[in-house]
Design a protein around this nucleic acid. Structure first.
Lengths: 251, 251
DNA sequence: GCATATGTTTGATCTAAGTCAATGCCTGAA
DNA sequence: TTCAGGCATTGACTTAGATCAAACATATGC
């Protein structure tokens, strides 16, 4: 894998109103002056599927949020065992104000566009505008909750439950709420390879494959091609995931 | 298990300088006026080992930090499978500004004293004094890093590595750095039962017991009684945990 | 149209950790 | 001093998921 260069803004068709920092309301309460400051230090980078954004331990002098596509945070042990510890969907945030180097490998699993802010100026804006820091705290607390849900999955769920859980997690962020509420079939495209799923779930990819086949055999999901899934009965899937019916609405 | 009442301040011998919020420098940059406000809304509660602080789903109208003793956050599945998702040592923080109900069971695993702040006034102080929010963000980011380390443990480590990891985690917060640096033996008292350890590690308590015995047989640790452990060679233990030699200094 | 690469499925076998069950070891109450 | 009730250990057996290995399905380039 090779490192990528910064995309020139003109190759990336994103305008301010698409910026996820704005989208997720960091700036909702900022005045024009503050917005202006964020605008100035903002730039876009894009990556192709499979490219690495930064390696764990590398210097990382920006923070960013995902505009489109999917990125992962992964930890690696010396002998090569890998565990995904973060899945970044559009509007999610990466990077830690006040830290020099990346703590995890950050990888684009699909084509990816990120909205970046150089760290130092971003920290200055944070100091000057409490709202930005407050929004960041809120987002970090959400991530912590998600991490704790994930810990339950890793520590206590069976392989089948893990697969069902992952599909619900992706469907919840992906599919229209409407489709889920009215009990109609839900359609999702898995944005991850079987290997990436195995790194998310703490399984081997063979086990992932077998359990997906099993869920299909049992009619819990239907599959077209490798990645396109339809869920005829979302409540049934939630049951298979071992979650409370409403657990996912917390996050 | 029974719910506990609020301890009267006079039964708890803690003064302001012991307050962990202060200790962890939330207030280091606050002026006297701001400190005063935190003082006013602060009170102490104490719990006996085994008592539950709050149940998941219960109303929780305070945030708190641990003064002394140990508390755990645990998630429970409908069929009773349990996974610990937080281990609170002195100076750690619990509770989420802006959330009504507890998301996890909070339990005292030893006798416990907590420094509590009623949520609403605490939120007001946060709004008024950015430093408090900034400190909270920093602490939350630390917790998120710890959670991600924990996810690697749950997803990819063997039972033996899990046990070794847990001992290093406790030793790192417990034992004097001096003893670890100069290569001398490190002494720790495990503050958890075998069952609590199994809930932390995503194992059964039998496996925990067996692996502790195995580490003892192999000379990695020495045990007196059930809980008192000495580690003759800390680097050896870190190796058994499957961690990089310096991994733990990040957190 | 064939070759190569990448991702995926499926089968056969093995093993680490779980389950079930018995026993041991303290501590504190009667 | 002995009995109970928690913890903890250890053993025998089972099993979910890992490992090893083969085959299959698309896509890309030649």
């Amino acid at each position: 894998m090779q490192k990528t260069s910064i995309a020139t803004p003109k190759t990336v068709h994103v305008n301010c109103s698409d910026c996820p920092i704005r989208h997720r309301a960091v700036c909702a309460r900022c005045d024009d002056d503050e917005l202006e400051r964020l605008e100035e230090i903002k730039y876009y980078r894009s990556f192709e599927a499979g490219q690495t954004v930064v390696w764990s331990g590398d210097r990382m002098d920006f923070v960013a949020s995902v505009v489109s596509g999917i990125a992962t945070l992964t930890q690696t042990m010396e002998d090569g065992r890998r565990q995904m510890v973060g899945l970044l969907l559009p509007s999610d945030f990466v990077g830690r104000p006040g830290r020099e180097t990346a703590a995890y490998d950050v990888t684009a699993t699909t084509d990816l566009v990120m909205c970046c802010f150089r760290k130092k100026p971003f920290e200055d804006v944070m100091m000057a505008t409490p709202h930005v820091g407050q929004r960041l705290l809120e987002m970090t607390l959400d991530e912590l909750d998600a991490a704790r849900e994930w810990m339950l999955l890793l520590g206590r769920k069976t392989a089948r439950e893990k697969i069902a859980s992952l599909i619900t997690i992706i469907a919840r962020r992906d599919a229209s709420l409407a489709a889920r509420k009215n009990g109609g079939p839900v359609v999702v495209d898995l944005p991850l390879t079987r290997e990436a799923m195995s790194e998310y779930l703490g399984l081997t990819l063979e086990t992932v494959s077998r359990q997906i086949s099993a869920l299909r055999r049992d009619g819990v999901i239907e599959i077209e091609g490798k990645r396109h899934i339809t869920i005829p009965d979302f409540d049934r899937l939630i049951e298979e995931a071992g979650d409370d019916a409403d657990g996912g609405f917390l996050v």
